[in-house]
Structures are given as structure tokens and as C-alpha cells.
Design a protein around this nucleic acid. Structure first.
Length: 648
RNA sequence: GCACCCGUAGCUCAAUUGGAUAGAGCACCGGUCUUCGGAACCGGGGGUUGGAGGUUCGAAUCCUCCCGGGUGUACCA
């Protein structure tokens, strides 16, 4: 229970008499935006008044009069157009906190109806090393799993890895033609990654060469259009617009041409690459053929796949270990291959899918592009896999809900997927595309290295830890921490910093990646919250106080100072925050809560002495608050997937 | 062309989904310290929420138009 949930229950019967949609009205009872308005505010009177033909303030008074709040709040105030301002009575708040100090869940109730939720996140392609693009999916997905599980749901986290796509054909082809045995023996995954890049580069090269003349043609046409428009005698206003559009197109084409050219130049300027390019003019098709052979059950390719895959998985595991992310299942695309033909046959026989231009498609009205479940060459694609996956998850796990923590750019795919799945019979499943924005560099473009490559995730994590280690040393000039502790703190602060930076942004927006902000010694960072927690630990260490037995004393909580009151008011809202996250799936609500909690603690710590407090009962009460704060911070960080070092 | 998204302080981002005077962090300026842990705390300046209309008790949020930017768009995932 939280104060807010209790207030809502008191309001419920009164509001039920006034509206059919009680939940909507209850949702308008909220924490006060400003402390001067009290602790909570009910904003429902204004919107309810109109349909009832009443004056809002009058209605507010009527609501207040019909509710029993004496024990809970000071007399409510009706202000402005009809706000109802509520302030908790101190003894009620003290009694509430009294329960929290002995409660591992910090007042957060388990959900009444636990659901089976499959969370699909991270999902890298095993053929290429993980990069910064996988960060958000992994971090947000893992955090949502923790939170859903904590709330009482049955959660199955699933890493839907790409282990069957066209990229694998590239590796196989590369391995058969270009492998460096010694390098492969020493570091199989490193060599496979090199082969992938090589084949990809050569394929891109030929593709670029082929496209260049077309591009030049397009550019010429675009230029001609601009000239024509300029001479068309169009009205100035609309001409300006037309020109702007045309010039934008032209710029885009030129940019494409430039990158196309540089791909060609990169190969041409390297003698051995150029030779390979000449030797393998059809490398893209050859790689595709290897993929097709693999899918068709070719023995050699299957054997290679069996050989490569465990190595790739091992490499992924190493990254996940550094990141501190785990999965219940790792069921990749290959796992669903045996089910694919049935899926398509089923869709066809039920009339959902039909042939079009040689491909098997599901058409959803209102969408231009069809949902292609089988390509014209007979191969299946990710749409097919995703449908097979849905069927499997419902059959095997009895999934009630599926969350897909995937880049927002794939929203159309999921729109079509969910719609198709519903028509296919899975309309009882709660599908959610938990979309997120792109990680940008400080130039506002997707985060890349200086040379234009994507940033490898593993090196990113290593750098974070190493930078954090430098900060740890800097902050510990007297060497109070031993080397092991230093390393642990660096790990927690570095990895935690990356995660926190990611999670504290609203997941739907893009954000700019910044080392300085993530690991800053000041501000809204993981380190700030970890530090607040470490400070509370310091108090118990210094006081030689055993926290377990402290909790068992069951001493009375005394709120003698506004900062104490503010701190507990903040902490008791933990359950409200968790329940918001359950519906909105936004971990940034939790980072915000933790930052505010750490802030409130700092104020409390400044204003209220703990160890030096002479009044024994007040001292114990404050120690209990320190313990409660620390447990809240630790639990919150854990739910984000961030470690909370004992000291730092 | 069509569809979707975004534009908030110098910078990076919030804003409980229509609530009261739009908030944080960074940066900048000024302050706190015989430190229960200074990786801390307090104060200050900084805004026509891209622009113009509209809807209503009330708009950053909803509607229309305009300006600026991004993404996706038939067989990659």
C-alpha cells in the first residue's frame, strides 16, 4: 500500500456515484506538483462537473464532504477552479513508514493477477559483433524483466538471436574462400567477424559499382528538374517550396553518391582487396547461395554452422557477462525453422495470406506494403520467423503478453506482425512493441567511431570501466580502498553509468551519447545514487550498528523535521512508481524516482543528525530511515540492473 | 508520393498522458566546510515550449495550417 493508493480507495465510492469511468477519475488524483499545495491533489472535480451541470468548486466540496478522510489527511482545501489539495496527517504517515521499515518490498504490492510475459530483447546477429545499437535493447529489456518479475509476473526473457539469416551465408562463403587458419585457431570469432566484414565489403563494392551510373543519371535528372523549375515561371511562393524539395533530393543523392564512391575507393586503393574483388565479381550471389544451401540442409554448410554457432554464442556470453544481462532462453531464428512451412500453409488455408508477385503476403488494409511471409524464391523471412515464434510462445509458455524491445524504426513491421497474429487467432495476447530511439553521437547522427564504423559494444564497456577506474583512483588519494574494491567499484560505476544514462532518457526519444555525462562526478548519474547508498552504509559502519537487529527493534518512527517527512513521503511512493512502470514500460520513471530519493536523503542527512543525536528514540528512528533509504536505493538500482557497492 | 516521429533554457534531457508559476542535470555566477562520507549541499541568472490560428475553466500535450529536422516505405533483420 502507498498513501496514494489509500487515498484513491477513499475517493472511489464517492466518484463511482458521479461517473461511469471511475478509473479515469481516480487517475487524476496525483502527488502534488508543488509542496505548497500539500502532498496530493485531486483534479477530477473540474472535468466531472461539466457533464453533471455543476459548478466545479461546488462539486469538489460535495466530493470532499462525502469522503471519510479524518484519520488520513488534514481537512482538504479546495482551491482555484476546483483542485482538492490533500495533506497527510503526520501520525498516519508515521504509521505507514512503520510498516515500510520492516518490509522488503518497500510497500510495493504484488500484482493481483500474475501474467506470463515473454520479453524479447537484445536479439543480436551472431554473425557480427555486438555494437552500441544493441545497448538500449539489452539494458531496457533486462530492466523491464526485473521490474515485471518483482511485481509478481511470470517473466520469460528470450534472446531471439539472428543465427539463420543471409549473414551466415557470408561467413560460410568467407570461411571457404578466405579463412586464415592460424587466426581462426587462435580466435575463431574474431576471424569470423573479419570474414563477415570482408565478404560484406566486397559485396558492397560490386553493388556500389553497379549503382554508380544510375546514381549519376539520377543526379543529372535532379539537376535538370531544378533548372526546369527555375525557368517554369511558377509563382514565387510555390516555386520556393518546389526548389527546396528538389534541392533536398539532390543533396541526398549527392551524399549517397559520395558514400558509394568511397566504398569503391576503399577497395580500389587496396591492392589485395582489389584483386579479390576482381576474382569474385558475384560474391553477393555466391554468399546468398551458401545461405540457401544451409537452409536446404546442405551437409557441409550445416556442419560449418554447427561449428561456428557455439563459438559465436560464447563470444556473446562474454559481452553479456560484462554487461550483467542474462536470459532465460536463447531461441534464435534457426530454432523455428521446422515450424515455418506450417505457418505459411496455415495462413494460406485460412485465407489470410495470398500470392502476390510471386511472394506470399498478408495484406492489411490501410498499409501500402504487404506483410511478406514467404519470398518469391521460396525462402522464409523474419516475418515468418516472428509468427512462428508467437505460436511457439503461446503453445509452450502460455504467454499472455509479449514485449518486443526493439528499435522504433521497426514499428511498421510490428504493426503488421501484431495485426496478422491477431487475425491468425492470437487476439488474446497483449503484444507490445517497446520501441526506443537511436543512440546518437555528438554530431546528432547515429553514434559511430571517427572512421565511420559502428562502435563495438564490448570495447565500449571496457572503456567505461577503465574510465571509471581512473575516477575511483582520483577520489581515493589515500588508498582507503583495496585493489579488489577499487575494481568492483569501477565495474559498478562504469557499467552502471552506461546503463543509467540509457535508462534515464525517455525510451522513445533519441539521445546523444556522452562519456562525460555518464561518468561525471556530479549530477544525475548512477554514481550519484550509488554514492548516496554508500553514505548510508558509512553511517552504520561508523556507528558499529547491525542493521538486521536494528530493524527487529521495531522502534517507533518519529518525523520531527520537514526533511524527514519529505524523505519518507518520497520513499513511500516507490509502489506508485513501480505500478506506473508496469503500464507504461518506462524505466526512466525509476531513475527519476531514485534521483529524487537520493536528493531527499541528502537534505535529510544535512538537516538531521543521526549518530550524534542525543535523544535515543529519535536516533533510532533516524537510523531506521537511513536503512530504509539504503534498501530503497539498492532495490531500485537492482531493478535497473545496476550494482550498488557497499562503499566507494 | 504515402505513412509515422520529433522541435522545450547556451548544451543534454524531463514534464505523472489536458492541470496551478513548464522542471532537472551540465555549463556559468555566487555561497556552505573545526566534513555523523565534499563523488556532497544551498542560492542566482537563463523560456513567447519552432510559428500562427483554434478547441475549454485550463494546452508543451488535442485539432488545422506553416517553417525546420528525422525515420520507414515488396521480398535484409
Amino acid at each position: 500500500m502507498t498513501a496514494l493508493s489509500e487515498i484513491k480507495e477513499r475517493f472511489r465510492p464517492a466518484l463511482a456515484n458521479l461517473t461511469a469511468d471511475v478509473e479515469a477519475a481516480l487517475a487524476m488524483i496525483r502527488p502534488a506538483q508543488d509542496a505548497k499545495f500539500g502532498d496530493f491533489q485531486a483534479n477530477c472535480a473540474m472535468s466531472l462537473a461539466k457533464p453533471l451541470g455543476k459548478a466545479p468548486r461546488e462539486l469538489a466540496q460535495q466530493i470532499v464532504d462525502s469522503i471519510q478522510l479524518n484519520d488520513l489527511c488534514e481537512p482538504p482545501e479546495i482551491v482555484g477552479p476546483g483542485f482538492i489539495n490533500l495533506r497527510l496527517k503526520s501520525d498516519w504517515l508515521e504509521a505507514l513508514v512503520q510498516k515500510l521499515v520492516g518490509d522488503e518490498r518497500i510497500g510495493c504490492d504484488s500484482v493481483a493477477e500474475p501474467k506470463t510475459v515473454v520479453v524479447d530483447y537484445s536479439s543480436p546477429n551472431v554473425a557480427k559483433p555486438m555494437h552500441v545499437g544493441h545497448l538500449r535493447s539489452s539494458v531496457i529489456g533486462a530492466s523491464l524483466c526485473h521490474i515485471l518479475r518483482f511485481a509478481g509476473h511470470k517473466v520469460i526473457s528470450d534472446n531471439h538471436i539472428g543465427d539463420w539469416g543471409t549473414q551466415f551465408g557470408m561467413i560460410i562463403f568467407g570461411y571457404q574462400n578466405f579463412v586464415d587458419r592460424a587466426a581462426y585457431e587462435a580466435d575463431p570469432v574474431g576471424e569470423l567477424a573479419r570474414l563477415y566484414r570482408l565478404v560484406n565489403q566486397l559485396a558492397d563494392y560490386h553493388d556500389a559499382k553497379q549503382k554508380l551510373p544510375q546514381l549519376d543519371e539520377l543526379i543529372a535528372t535532379a539537376e535538370a528538374r531544378i533548372t526546369a523549375a527555375e525557368q517554369s515561371g511558377e509563382e514565387p511562393k510555390s516555386l520556393k517550396k518546389t526548389l527546396k524539395k528538389l534541392r533536398g533530393d539532390l543533396d541526398g543523392l549527392r551524399e549517397t553518391r559520395q558514400s558509394t564512391e568511397s566504398k569503391i575507393r576503399a577497395v580500389d586503393s587496396d591492392e589485395s582487396l582489389a584483386a579479390l574483388a576482381t576474382e569474385y565479381p558475384n560474391i553477393a550471389r555466391q554468399a546468398r547461395d551458401e545461405t540457401a544451401k544451409l537452409h536446404a540442409g546442405d551437409e557441409t554448410n550445416r556442419r560449418l554452422w554447427d561449428e561456428f554457432l557455439p563459438e559465436c554464442l560464447k563470444a556473446l556470453d562474454a559481452v553479456y557477462q560484462k554487461l550483467g544481462v542474462t536470459f532465460d532462453r536463447t531461441l534464435g531464428e534457426s530454432f523455428y525453422q521446422p515450424l515455418m512451412a506450417d505457418v505459411v500453409a496455415d495462413l494460406k488455408s485460412s485465407g489470410l495470406a495470398s500470392d502476390s508477385e510471386g511472394a506470399v503476403c498478408v495484406f492489411i488494409e490501410g498499409n501500402d506494403a504487404p506483410f511478406i511471409v514467404q519470398k518469391s524464391d521460396g525462402a522464409f523471412n523474419y516475418a515468418t520467423t516472428d509468427l512462428a515464434t508467437i505460436r511457439y510462445r503461446v503453445n509452450e509458455f502460455s504467454a499472455d503478453a509479449m514485449l518486443y524491445v526493439v528499435d522504433t524504426r521497426q514499428s511498421e513491421h510490428f504493426k503488421l506482425l501484431f495485426e496478422t497474429a491477431k487475425r491468425w487467432g492470437y487476439d488474446g495476447v497483449d503484444f507490445r512493441h517497446v520501441n526506443f530511439g537511436t543512440v546518437l553521437g555528438d554530431d546528432g547522427r547515429p553514434f559511430k567511431t571517427r572512421s565511420g564504423d559502428t562502435v563495438g559494444l564490448e570495447s565500449l564497456l571496457d572503456e567505461a570501466v577503465s574510465r571509471a577506474y581512473d575516477v575511483v583512483i582520483e577520489n581515493d588519494p589515500n588508498g582507503e580502498l583495496d585493489e579488489d574494491t577499487r575494481r568492483n567499484v569501477a565495474q559498478a560505476v562504469g557499467i552502471g553509468g552506461i546503463k543509467y544514462a540509457d535508462l534515464h532518457h525517455n525510451r522513445e526519444s533519441d539521445y546523444v551519447f556522452s562519456w562525460d555525462k555518464m561518468l561525471a562526478r556530479t549530477g544525475d548519474t548512477a554514481a550519484y545514487i550509488q554514492y548516496a547508498n554508500a553514505r548510508t552504509n558509512g553511517i552504520f559502519r561508523k556507528g558499529g550498528i547491525d542493521r538486521k537487529s536494528l530493524r527487529q527493534t521495531n522502534s517507533k518512527i518519529i518525523l520531527s523535521h520537514p526533511s524527514e517527512r519529505a524523505l519518507v513521503l518520497q520513499i513511500q511512493s516507490f509502489g506508485d512508481v513501480i505500478s506506473s512502470i508496469l503500464t507504461e514500460l518506462r524505466p526512466n520513471l525509476l531513475t527519476q524516482f531514485l534521483f529524487e530519493t537520493a536528493n531527499s536523503f541528502s537534505a535529510f542527512f544535512r538537516d538531521c543528525h543521526v549518530l550524534n543525536e542525543e535523544d535515543e528514540s529519535l536516533r533510532t528512528s533516524r537510523l531506521l530511515l537511513c536503512d530504509l533509504t539504503s534498501r530503497t536505493l539498492r532495490l531500485g538500482l537492482t531493478l535497473l540492473g545496476i550494482d550498488a557497492p557497499e562503499r566507494m
